[in-house]
Amino acid sequence: MTITPLRVTGAAGDPLTEAIELTRRLKLPHLRRAMADLIPTAKAQRWDPAEVVQVLLAEEAAGRDQANLRTRRKRAAFPAGKTFGDGTRPHPRSHGRLRTRCAAWNGCNARRTCPSAARRAPASVTSAKPSAKRPSRPA
């Protein structure tokens, strides 16, 4: 049993049109975009066919890499406007210090964890349940 290859025919049987139809069928969008500019240039400069194929496949690989990167960034749902490596990022611990200061200044519930607020906290903390006092030990 012999398998004959399926031939996609363009409107006028033009090889470039057939190649474009094949790239649609094989889902090679980046190769298709590059082919429109590259094939006439390759014909005019008499490129080796292997070189043309190598350039087209490299363009498809680069396009897929960029598309994968865009897709991964989109799925990661990073906050808008945030970038990495721009050099303006503060020291990693500064955010925690600012939060601690803010908690101490504003008097929110984080006072218990703020060391500076703990020093200023009152000596006795009232609670709903009365606590039993321990007898003090003689010195």
Rank of each mutant, 00 (worst) to 15 (best):
L38D: 06
A76S: 10
R93N: 03
W47E: 01
R99G: 08
A61V: 15
G87S: 07
R99M: 09
S94Q: 09
S94W: 02
R89E: 07
R64H: 11
L38R: 05
P92I: 03
L26H: 11
R93Y: 01
R89G: 02
R75G: 09
T83M: 01
F84Y: 06
T83V: 12
H95D: 04
T100D: 05
G81V: 11
E60T: 09
A67E: 14
P40W: 05
L56F: 06
V55F: 00
A76L: 14
D65Q: 14
L98I: 10
P40Y: 07
R72E: 12
V53R: 05
W105Q: 13
R75Q: 14
G85Y: 08
A104P: 00
A61M: 13
A42G: 07
V53A: 14
L26V: 15
A104H: 10
R73S: 06
H95T: 14
N68L: 12
D65G: 12
A34C: 10
P92S: 01
A44T: 07
H91P: 07
H30R: 06
A44N: 07
R64L: 14
A62Y: 01
R75D: 15
W105P: 00
R32V: 04
Q66L: 14
K43M: 03
V55Q: 02
R72I: 09
E51T: 04
L57W: 00
A62S: 14
K27T: 15
F78R: 11
K74S: 13
G63H: 06
R97K: 12
K74G: 10
P40K: 03
A77D: 12
G87Q: 08
A104D: 07
A67Y: 04
P49S: 15
G87H: 11
A103V: 11
A42M: 05
D65N: 13
Q45N: 06
R93V: 02
N106Y: 06
D48T: 06
P29S: 08
L31K: 06
A61R: 15
T41C: 00
R75T: 12
R70P: 03
P90E: 04
G96P: 03
H91A: 12
A58W: 00
P29E: 08
A62R: 14
A50L: 12
R101W: 02
L57I: 03
A77T: 14
K43G: 08
S94A: 10
Q54L: 08
W47G: 03
L98F: 02
Q66K: 10
D37N: 04
N68Y: 14
E60M: 08
D37S: 04
R75M: 10
F84C: 00
N106C: 03
P90R: 04
K82F: 00
D86Y: 12
R101F: 01
N68D: 15
P49F: 05
